[in-house]
């Protein structure tokens, strides 16, 4: 049924997607499409830009004019699109390794320039497509194939980076908290200026199994139990690590 409702938004001729069974990316993609539909964003006024990685494939699954660019360069490529087509809603969908890792410099400067882009980052704590290497969001101590003794570093603090700007829209949600996720997407789409949404996700095949999770449902339940929606955020207050919410200035 959802295929009929979202056929203008998603390119179902390419189904099944290349994502693993149980992956949270399908949830995120559907919620983005629903939020777009409810916000009157469609192929005549919106374009999707992705980088490289599992999440990077998102652009190709949208039934819009879309670009699947280079690793880490989705944000700057999107800024080029927006510069020549200010009438289009330019939405970037990519992963934490792509946007925060290799593309970190572009995120820093595009957000500083307050480029009118909507950047949705799927955070699954891992480089999934290449087999489960440590990403900028891998929690400290978590073992991956490139951090066999556990990640020695604190994860990337996107909230800190984005909210250091004079003007910002920063939101955090998860693939479990779908109504909240949809609300965040709809709010970011109506925001004028740079908007970043972190979507907490998981990777069962190339991370979760190694950490002892038996199936994607267990990982989804962990997200459900870990994260709480913070709705009474005061100005100047930051979200705690386990909180979901929207911060703007």
């Amino acid at each position: 049924m959802y295929q009929e409702e979202l056929k203008e938004y998603l390119r179902f001729s390419r189904w099944p997607t290349m994502w693993c069974p149980g992956c949270g990316l399908g949830i995120m993609q559907r919620v983005i499409a629903e939020a777009m539909k409810e916000s009157n964003l469609d192929h005549t006024n919106t374009t999707i830009i992705s980088g490289i990685g599992c999440t990077g494939r998102t652009a190709g699954y949208f039934n819009f004019d879309s670009i699947h660019g280079l690793h880490g360069r989705a944000v700057c490529l999107a800024e080029g699109v927006k510069a020549v087509r200010p009438d289009l809603n330019v939405v970037v969908v990519s992963g934490d390794g792509d946007i925060f890792g290799i593309g970190g410099n572009h995120l820093l400067h595009s957000s500083r320039r307050n480029a009118n882009l909507k950047v949705i980052v799927n955070v699954n704590d891992i480089y999934g497509l290449t087999g489960g290497q440590m990403s900028p969001c891998t929690p400290k101590g978590v073992k991956t194939v490139t951090s066999p003794q556990g990640s020695p570093y604190d994860p990337f603090n996107a909230q800190g980076l984005i909210t250091s700007n004079a003007h910002y829209f920063y939101a955090r949600s998860s693939v479990w908290h779908q109504p909240h996720l949809k609300k965040c997407i709809k709010e970011m789409m109506s925001w004028h200026g740079f908007a970043l949404l972190e979507v907490r996700d998981y990777c069962i095949e190339n991370n979760g199994r190694r950490l002892g999770f038996k199936n994607p449902h267990e990982m989804l339940m962990q997200i459900k139990e870990t994260y709480k929606i913070k709705s009474d955020l005061q100005p100047g207050q930051q979200l705690a690590q386990n909180e979901l919410g929207i911060m703007t200035r």
């Binding site: 390119r11 005549t44 652009a59 004019d65 670009i67 660019g69 009438d87 289009l88």
Partner: peptide, 10 residues
């Protein structure tokens, strides 16, 4: 852009 449903990929 904005007239079609083209996908450009590397």
């Amino acid at each position: 852009f904005g007239q079609g449903r083209r996908h450009f990929t590397g």
